[in-house]
Each structure stands twice: as C-alpha cells, then as structure tokens.
Amino acid sequence: MTAARVSLPVGLVVLALVAAAMGSSFMPLDRVTAALFGQGSRADTVILWNIRLPRVTMALLAGAGLGIAGMLLQRATRNPLASPGVLGIVDGAAVGVLLFLLLFSNEANVLTVSIVWQPVAAILGAVVFALVVASLAARDDTRPMTLILYGISLAALANAIVVLLIIAGPVYRASQGLIWLAGSVQSAEWREVWMLAMALLVALPALVALIRPLDQLHLDDLSARTTGLSVTRTRVATLALSVLLTAAMVSIVGGIGFVGLIAPHAARLLFGTGAAWQLTGAALIGAGMVLMADLLVRVLFQPLEVPAGAVTALIGAPYFLFLLLRHGRAHA
C-alpha cells in the first residue's frame, strides 16, 4: 500500500505532463516545461495555457470529484455496487442542465443568463432525482439493494426525459447536448475549470469533518450507533455531499460513467479502507482515469472528438461486471 501511496501521485504528474505534450501537434517535454514556466515560445505558451492545460486540469478535477462522490455514495449506502450513474443522479443532473438550456436560450441559441447558473440547474435536477430515489427506498431500508433498483428505474425515466428534451430543443443544442451527455473534457475553458475547483474546495472541509464518522460507518448500523455515531445524520450528510459533487461535475463535463464506481474500489485495494486514505485514493485514481480516457481518445481517434465518457464505459463496464460476479458469488 505504501508503494501505491507514493507511486500513484508521481504517475499522475507524469501522465499530466504527457497529456500536456500530446495534441494535434506533439510538443516535446522540454518545450512543455518551458512554456509552463513562461519561458517558451509565444505559440507554445498559447497552446499550452489556453488549450491543453485547461483540458488536463479539467480532466483531473472532474475525475477526482467523481471518484470522491462515488466513494461517499458507496460508504453511505454501504453498497459496493452503488454509483452516481446507477442511482439516477447523473441522469437527473442531465435533465436539470437540458431544461436550463431549453428554458434560458433565445432564438439564436444564445444563453440569456450566465453560464454559472448551469451547475445550479444540474444540482437541482440531481437533488430532485436523488430525493425521489431516497424516499422510495427509505420505506424499506432493510433491503439496501432496493436502492439500486429504484435508482435504475429513475435513471431510465430521466434518460427518457433527456431524449425528449434533446429532440424538443433547437437542433444546435441537440448535437451539443449529445456530446455533453456522453461526457467529455474537450474544449475546456479556464472559467469551467475554476467552477470545478470551487466545487471541490467548498466540499473539502465537509470531507475532512466526515472522515471519522465514515470510518465508524464501517460497522453495521446498530454497532455504529451504540459506539456513539449519529448514523442517520452522517448518512444524510454524506449522501448530500455526494449528490452535490456529482451534480457539479456532471454539469460541466457531462456523464463520464463508471469513474465513481471503479475509483473507490481500486482505492480500497491500493490504499486500504481508512476513509482518509480511501478518499485520497479515489480522488487520485478518478483523476487518472478521466485523464487517461481523454488521452486515449485523443491518441486513437484524432481528429474526431470521441467523448472520454465512452472510453471510461468501455474500460469500466467489464470491471464492474467482474465486481458484480464476485459480489453475487459472495452472497449466493
């Protein structure tokens, strides 16, 4: 585990440098570092600071956020198969964003309000769907797996609404909507990166405060309560934080699937089950997953813009099936 704790951050930095070097034209590493510290040519500096760095930073931040959100969700529901995607939170956020785009665009397809409201719309959508799923599942909380079934149902509903909204919206928005839904970090701008960073920064104190209660939540509900944990309060706070983080990430990078599912698992294997380490690990692994996926689509499909979300699904889905199989066998 110590090896992973050191090598993973180092690997991530290397990966980020490689990602900054790759693009429509390759930029050798010495030019990357030069431009990074303001010593490079004008063209290099512009490419690096205006195109590549926002994209790399966005992939890192979004991945970290999704990894953390997934880990919080799995801990709060005590369900290793829970993820923001499966529970309908991602699709709910998508409904919020599409409604926002539909309601606040004028005929020329220009937003009539500031783009900073987009995450707010996403959060509203995610919260509404999360609340519906939670209240449906709350009635029989003795069967934790029902949460997932309700999540899948509500995700299907949200998905149908998304399809209808895309068709109902202007054609321009439709194609935009499809790309955004698939989850991608291309054409990233610093403004969006700052929005992501702000969301993570706001979440940080709450995360720190939750570390010890989350460790205590390793116990079953009864034992956790009798050792002094306010189980319901902890769970609600954790779920709320997870939903807010997911919505903030999804509103900007779209539905990058399976990161919130896989990152916490890998973190548990590589970093152990302590909440502080597992959160750190989930953030690092999530960041690495999205960055790697984005790098892959750039290398493989250049100049076509395949969304990174497609790659995370292609990698994540088989891993999830493996987990499912193991979980099923353990409970058969």
């Binding site: 390793h218 116990l219 079953d220 034992s223 009798t226 050792t227 944990l229």
Partner: peptide, 15 residues
C-alpha cells in the same frame, strides 16, 4: 450515551 452504555447486537458486521 455511547460513553455510558455500550451494546453488542446480534449480527454485528465490519469489513
């Protein structure tokens, strides 16, 4: 309450 009364349930679970 936890400092005063400890309790062990029938089926406690941990990872």
């Amino acid at each position: 309450l936890a400092r005063t009364v400890a309790m062990l349930g029938q089926t406690p679970t941990a990872p």
